[in-house]
Amino acid sequence: MDLIEIIVLAVLQGLTEFLPISSSAHLILPSQVFGWQDQGLAFDVAVHVGTLAAVMFYFRHDMQRLISAWFKSGWSSKPSADAKLAWYVGLATIPAGLAGVLLGNWIEANLRSVEVIAWATIGFGILLGVADQRRGNGISLARMTLMMALVIGLAQALALIPGTSRSGITMTAALLLGLHRVDAARFSFLLSIPLILAAGGLKTIELSQSLLPVDWTSLALGAALSAISAWVCIYYFLAFINRIGMLPFVLYRLALGGVLLLFFV
């Protein structure tokens, strides 16, 4: 990989991991559309480490509060609101984890195509727009229920389909269930932490068993750029999402999907 490819792919990972526009689609497309060499497993691990570092740093105070609350009252008959939220994040991660173990290889072999990405980008983009328009007055995270968390977790499993967007589908489900935009985004971002950690761990194990040489300079640059761009993305998304809504992302998804269908399928 040359310097331009490293910069583009790392920044794409950082931005699209948390925007509702699909990181997997944007990382697959350069190799298929521009003929770039596949970035490889080591680079995937590096940029995921970067995005994980960004989201954990941004939500470090929330994580400290949730973990502390879980240890204090998480197993009691009347857990605190923070302890409940910690449980909800953990339990909502399970469906996507199981789906990845059971279906990951099949999806990798059969669904990583431009056509699938295009239709998923359009279809789930429309669903995101519908969810944003139908949202109610806005339920806060403090009023979230276990059933709501599990529904969002089941929706997250759909993100295995390239073009779906993990953040997009979880925000869509949260909005359809009545969560406030900002709270839907915050839960989506918190939900990303255990999933990225698990996915990164599995990729790291695979990488440790590989005999291919590792370009540590490229990996360090990729991790740093993905971390910076991811932090910027989270900060501005949460700052402006209540004002701008989901429409800009819906229109972007429709435009991207249309271009892919017209010129690359």
Rank of each mutant, 00 (worst) to 15 (best):
M1Y: 13
M1E: 06
L3T: 15
L3N: 13
E5V: 04
I6L: 14
V8F: 10
A10G: 04
A10F: 08
V11L: 02
L12C: 05
L12E: 01
L15I: 15
T16E: 02
T16H: 02
F18W: 15
I21Y: 03
S23T: 04
A25M: 03
A25T: 06
H26C: 08
L29N: 03
Q39L: 10
G40F: 11
L41E: 12
A42V: 09
D44I: 01
D44Q: 12
D44V: 02
V47S: 01
H48W: 01
H48P: 00
V49N: 00
G50T: 00
A54D: 03
M56F: 10
Y58E: 06
M63F: 15
R65H: 12
S68Q: 12
A69F: 11
W70I: 07
K72A: 12
S73D: 12
S76T: 10
S76K: 14
P79F: 14
S80Y: 03
D82F: 02
A86F: 14
A96W: 07
L98F: 15
G100D: 07
V101H: 01
V101I: 15
I107S: 06
E108C: 05
A109T: 13
N110R: 08
S113I: 06
V114P: 01
I117F: 02
G125H: 12
G125W: 05
I126V: 12
L127E: 02
G129A: 03
G129Y: 06
Q133W: 11
R134F: 11
R135D: 03
G136R: 11
N137D: 09
G138S: 09
L141V: 11
M144P: 08
L146W: 15
M148G: 14
M148W: 05
A149D: 05
V151A: 15
G153P: 06
G153S: 07
L154I: 14
L158D: 12
A159G: 04
L160M: 10
G163M: 09
R166N: 04
R166Y: 04
R166S: 01
R166M: 05
G168F: 01
I169L: 02
I169N: 01
M171Y: 06
T172P: 03
A173L: 03
G178T: 04
L179Y: 08
H180E: 09
H180Q: 14
D183H: 13
A184D: 05
A184P: 09
L190H: 13
L197K: 00
L197N: 01
L197S: 08
L202H: 12
K203F: 06
K203P: 00
L207M: 14
S208L: 14
S208I: 11
S208V: 07
Q209E: 09
S210D: 05
L212M: 09
V214N: 05
W216F: 08
T217I: 11
A220M: 13
L221G: 08
L225V: 05
S226R: 01
A230T: 02
W231N: 00
I234T: 05
Y235D: 03
L238R: 02
L238Q: 04
L238N: 07
A239M: 13
N242M: 00
G245Y: 15
L247H: 11
L247V: 14
L247F: 12
R253M: 10
L254N: 11
A255E: 08
L260K: 02
L261Q: 13
F263R: 06
